[in-house]
Design a binder for these strands. Sequence first.
DNA 1: CTTGAAAAGCAGTGAAC
DNA 2: GTTCACTGCTTTTCAAG
Lengths: 158, 158
Amino acid sequence: MIDRIDIKLLDLLQRHGPRPAAELGEKVGLSASACHRRIRALEAGGIIAGYTARLVPERIGLGLDVFVDISLTSQSEEALTAFESAVKSYDEILECQLLSGASDYRLRVAARNVADFDRLHRHCLSRLPGVAAMHSAFTLRTIKAFEGYPVSGIDERR
Amino acid sequence: MIDRIDIKLLDLLQRHGPRPAAELGEKVGLSASACHRRIRALEAGGIIAGYTARLVPERIGLGLDVFVDISLTSQSEEALTAFESAVKSYDEILECQLLSGASDYRLRVAARNVADFDRLHRHCLSRLPGVAAMHSAFTLRTIKAFEGYPVSGIDERR
DNA sequence: CTTGAAAAGCAGTGAAC
DNA sequence: GTTCACTGCTTTTCAAG
């Protein structure tokens, strides 16, 4: 269902967005309309969820990137649900996963600076329900920022 | 320099990508060309780094999301540099940060499944230079996936 | 059923106000 | 910041493989 050309397309789309489809077609050796059809198919097939602008966090004043690991006092269905819906309601929480291992949840938070993180901590993190312990780790330096999934290996992976 | 309209624009661009600028303009109360000019200014100002297609990892066979925390045997300049350039060379490593706290580095890795992660572990992680200890945490469930920075608070943050 | 060329429509782009 | 006009991309159509 997904062939080499689709993989190339996905790679280009991840790197450069939906810029002139004709150009994309040229790069993968496809006519403009054929390329257009494939992209629409990838969108319709739920492989492409949508398109976004990649913002530079420093340039919008969000220079501090923090991981917050949290364990809960209770693992009951209600406790998890309450915690998760609180997490979803805060825009400042960028990501949240339930992890294997020691801590239960890992959040990712962006703040302007340490003082702003303190504000976030009081205003948002401390209001999350059922928190037993919280541990923050600051990003000192980003070696590699997320820039898309490795798509070239899809065929080997199927 | 960045006003309310820019903030609205950034928010829309993060959510929906660079889709018809005329539509964007309408939503923020701007003519098509005024909107276009603002977007170009945001791009030229380095606030917008580019555009990407958001892929659904499960649909490209990458159902397993893993954090790998790593500490090094040496903190020397050379050791850090060697480690970091190795990290950058592997496409399978999606992200990498230098963190405060116990572990030195945190990587994020996407794999097809547990067996594929094992392959990655042997083929890529174990080849990183100067690793003293490695600890992996699997994402059991994603409560909130990254969908852009909270842009509405920028003006308060300046 | 799929592909590519061409036509029609519409959005992006720049100049003038 | 807006209007207008033009260029060029996207999208549809249609005919051929």
